[in-house]
């Protein structure tokens, strides 16, 4: 996420040498919230890839005698009802939650884009049929649709990801279709046809790359929403099975202890909230860049 942010934002800072660096510095200095968000996202991603950097404790095995200890230097987030270190579980939970989020966004992106590309490129009946399906999908509340799908598929992180991913297919399809329609009749596409390139090749080589910008930005915007949806399903018990930690499940496990051990729900809950907010902040920055960047069509 952070890498992409930098890459997307860099072209806006055109210039050379020292001037470029100064402008970059000024850009970031004016946006402390964005800096914090990028740092937070980077930290969460690092935790997901290498949890060992943050904690050396075992997320699955606790010390029953040390149960329900309040946050302290030894246990930053306190311990849970079985004496497991909650900070360790939150760190290890990042991998599980982000994997599901990435998979769900990826699914929406790939399947939705394919639908949109086909609908936009072929038009006519194909377009009508695919877009009516998308309309139907959009008319069902997202959470309800996810619940239905995950109930049919069964429990587990991957199933939760699929269930959440399915709900965003229609939105991706719509955006991709609009972009494809914008691009499909421009000169270079017609030129490609005229020089004898076959339709699938034109779509993949010329239309798709030029239509994908807004779709990729939308994927970034979706990231926060999807993380929230994944956590919601995991909260309801559809996600990883115990004792695997997952953010939503951590919040859910702690809610019977609200009166006696506030940290069990509060700290993982704040972690989710902070990550979602940071993801949204970064996505907004990307969106702004993408709008500014868009060059007029030839």
């Amino acid at each position: 996420m952070s890498g992409r942010a930098v890459r997307a934002i860099a072209p806006a800072l055109a210039g050379t040498g020292g001037a470029r660096a100064r402008r970059a510095l000024a850009f970031w200095a004016r946006r402390p919230g964005l800096v914090a968000s990028v740092l937070l996202i980077a930290t969460v991603l690092t935790a997901a890839v290498a949890p060992g950097l943050f904690t050396s404790q075992d997320p699955l095995t606790g010390v029953p005698a040390d149960r329900l200890l309040a946050p302290s230097a030894d246990h930053l987030f306190g311990t849970d009802q079985l004496g497991r270190d909650l900070f360790t579980r939150t760190v290890h939970g990042a991998a599980e939650s982000l994997r599901a989020t990435a998979l769900a966004v990826g699914l929406g992106l790939v399947v939705g884009s394919a639908f949109g590309l086909v609908a936009g490129a072929f038009g006519g009946l194909v377009d009508d049929a695919l877009m009516r399906v998308a309309d139907v999908l959009l008319s069902i509340p997202a959470l309800l649709l996810s619940l239905t799908v995950v109930t049919a598929l069964g429990f587990g992180t991957v199933n939760v990801a699929i269930a959440v991913g399915v709900t965003s297919v229609a939105s991706f399809a719509r955006i991709m279709r609009a972009e494809v329609i914008r691009v499909r009749d421009v000169g270079y596409v017609e030129a490609a046809y005229a020089s004898g390139v076959r339709r699938p090749t034109v779509l993949l080589r010329h239309v798709l790359p030029n239509a994908s910008g807004p779709v990729l930005v939308f994927a970034a915007v979706e990231f926060g929403t999807v993380l929230l949806a994944v956590s919601a399903l995991s909260f309801l018990g559809y996600g990883a099975q115990p004792p695997e930690p997952e953010w939503g499940a951590l919040v859910s496990d702690g809610r019977d202890y609200l009166a006696t051990a506030w940290w069990l729900t509060t700290l993982p809950g704040l972690t989710i909230a902070a990550t979602v907010l940071a993801a949204n902040r970064v996505a907004r920055a990307l969106e702004a860049e993408e709008t500014q960047d868009r060059e007029p069509l030839p």
């Binding site: 699955l60 009802q81 079985l82 115990p242 004792p243």
Partner: peptide, 15 residues
């Protein structure tokens, strides 16, 4: 209610 916690603890004991 306590089933899940009991099973997670038994899981640790068997491990």
């Amino acid at each position: 209610g306590p089933n899940e916690n009991a099973l997670q603890l038994i899981q640790q004991q068997l491990r």
